[in-house]
């Protein structure tokens, strides 16, 4: 924790406070992609990425696949995560800058160290490339989440992982099939806990 400041000033401005809980677990990147309270347009059936080039999209897709692979349950690809990431990035200029520059840096460093682009490496080599990036991202303070890591490759990994986790665990495959979400039902009574704790 930072040293306490004797006095800190915040101008909170005109942000509406609807008494939402603090520190909520539902802050996803994409939730900021539209004005609060706006009724959604029906989800268009995206077939082509809007922001990413074909090469960039292939790279982001492969990274998402490695971050949440298919196991006995569907993984990021089957859950449509790459197109979700494209949707988030296409609506966020800061993310666009981050992806464009960090993908270029990632590609350069991959070619320099491994002699070929990431997508041409075999899976074991790809995991070797991502492992130190993941370790660096994990070592950052939780408060740094969402912020750019110091190295562009780390920032790229962190952004792709965060958006993959967001997109996957809010998808039907992730929430229902993988995690077993069973709420949103009608219960006559809330059960009394009978466990030994």
């Amino acid at each position: 924790m930072k040293a306490p400041r004797r006095e800190a000033l915040r101008i909170v401005g005109a942000i509406s406070s609807t008494c939402a809980f603090p520190f909520a677990a539902n802050e996803l990147y994409a939730q900021h992609a539209g004005p609060h309270g706006e009724s959604p347009a029906p989800p268009p059936a995206r077939t082509q990425p809007e922001f990413f080039t074909a090469e960039e999209f292939a790279l982001v897709s492969r990274m998402a696949d490695l971050i949440i692979p298919a196991t006995s349950t569907p993984g990021a690809l089957a859950a449509g995560v790459p197109m979700y990431i494209d949707m988030v990035v296409s609506r966020n200029q800061e993310a666009q800058r981050l992806f464009r520059t960090s993908i270029a840096a990632f590609d350069l460093s991959c070619r320099a160290r491994r002699g070929k682009p990431f997508l041409e490496l075999d899976e074991a080599a790809q995991i070797e490339v991502l492992t130190p990036l993941c370790e660096a991202a994990d070592a950052e303070a939780p408060s740094a989440q969402g912020r750019a890591g110091r190295k562009p490759e780390v920032a790229l990994f962190k952004a792709v992982k965060s958006m993959t986790a967001d997109g996957y665990y809010t998808s039907k495959a992730g929430l229902i099939d993988e995690l077993g979400y069973s709420g949103n039902t009608v219960m006559a009574e809330f059960p009394v806990c009978t466990h030994e704790h």
Binding site: I67, T71, D138, A165, D166, Y169, T170, E178
Partner: peptide, 22 residues
């Protein structure tokens, strides 16, 4: 008070791959 239909914390879990998913 967390609502289990939102899993924004998942990105803070360390690692990646099948072990991360688990």
């Amino acid at each position: 008070y967390q609502n289990r239909r939102a899993v924004g914390w998942a990105r803070m879990v360390k690692g990646f791959g099948a072990s991360y998913k688990q």
